[in-house]
C-alpha cells in the first residue's frame, strides 16, 4: 500500500513540475515534508545537497533518495518510475501526434501565466530552507555569496558544492571537533571493513 502511495505522490510531482528540477523542490517539500512528514526539514536540505552534488537529473536523484530512505531499493524503483512516467508519456504523445503543440496560441497564453509563477515557486522555498538550515546573521553571507557567484559570475554549481563541503570540513577541523572522535570512528571503520571483506 505504501508503494502505491509513493507511486501516486511522485507521479503527481512529475506531472506538475514545469521548468525543470528546481521547480520540483516546493512540490516535493509540500508533499513529503509538510503533508506526509516522511522526511524532516533538516534531512530535506541534506537530501538536496546530495542530489545537487551528483550528476544526473535533479528530480530523479531526489526521487531515488526518498524512495530508498523509506522503502529501500524497491521504494526507489517505484518513486523513479512515478516521477518519469508523466513526462515520458506526454513527450511521446507530442513526438507522435502533436508536432505543433508549442505553437498553439492557447498553450502559449497559459504558459505566459505559469512561467512567472514557477519562478515564484522556486523563490519561496529559499526562505523556508534558510530557516530549516538554521541560518543566522553570522552565516547569512554564505548563501548570498554562493547565489551571487553563480548568478553574476557564472560559476558552475558543482564548484560551489565542492567549495562548501571543503569549507565545512576545514571549519570542523579548525574547531577541533573530530580530533578525538576521529580515532574512535577510524577504529570502528577498520573493524567494519574487515567484517565486510
Amino acid at each position: 500500500m505504501i508503494y502505491l502511495k509513493l507511486f501516486c505522490i511522485f507521479f503527481k510531482i512529475g506531472a506538475f513540475t514545469l521548468g525543470g528540477g528546481y521547480a520540483m523542490i516546493p512540490i516535493i517539500e509540500n508533499e513529503i515534508v509538510t503533508k506526509k512528514k516522511w522526511i524532516s526539514p533538516e534531512d530535506f536540505v541534506d537530501l538536496l545537497a546530495i542530489a545537487q552534488s551528483l550528476p544526473g537529473v535533479l528530480a530523479v536523484n531526489i526521487s531515488i533518495f526518498v524512495g530508498y530512505k523509506l522503502k529501500g531499493l524497491r521504494g526507489s524503483i517505484v518513486t523513479t518510475f512515478g516521477v518519469i512516467i508523466p513526462s515520458f508519456t506526454i513527450i511521446l504523445a507530442i513526438a507522435l501526434f502533436f508536432h505543433n503543440f508549442k505553437d498553439n496560441p492557447i498553450v502559449e497564453r497559459i504558459f505566459k501565466g505559469i512561467r512567472p509563477a514557477v519562478v515564484a515557486l522556486i523563490a519561496a522555498p529559499v526562505f523556508s530552507l534558510a530557516k530549516s538550515t538554521h541560518i543566522n546573521r553570522y552565516t547569512a553571507w554564505i548563501p548570498i555569496v554562493c547565489a551571487l557567484l553563480i548568478w553574476l559570475l557564472g560559476f558552475s554549481p558543482i564548484w560551489i558544492i565542492i567549495g562548501a563541503g571543503l569549507g565545512g570540513y576545514l571549519w570542523g577541523r579548525y574547531k577541533g571537533k573530530f580530533i578525538k572522535a576521529k580515532t574512535d570512528i577510524k577504529n570502528k571503520n577498520d573493524t567494519k571493513d574487515k567484517n565486510d571483506d
Binding site: D46, A49, S53, L129, P143, I150, P157, W171
Partner: peptide, 17 residues
C-alpha cells in the same frame, strides 16, 4: 561537518536558480 558547509550553500544554489 561537510554537510554543515553544504547546507547554507544549497540555499544559495536555489536562490541563484
Amino acid at each position: 561537518s561537510i554537510f554543515k558547509g553544504l547546507r547554507p550553500a544549497v540555499v544559495g544554489l536555489i536562490a541563484s536558480a
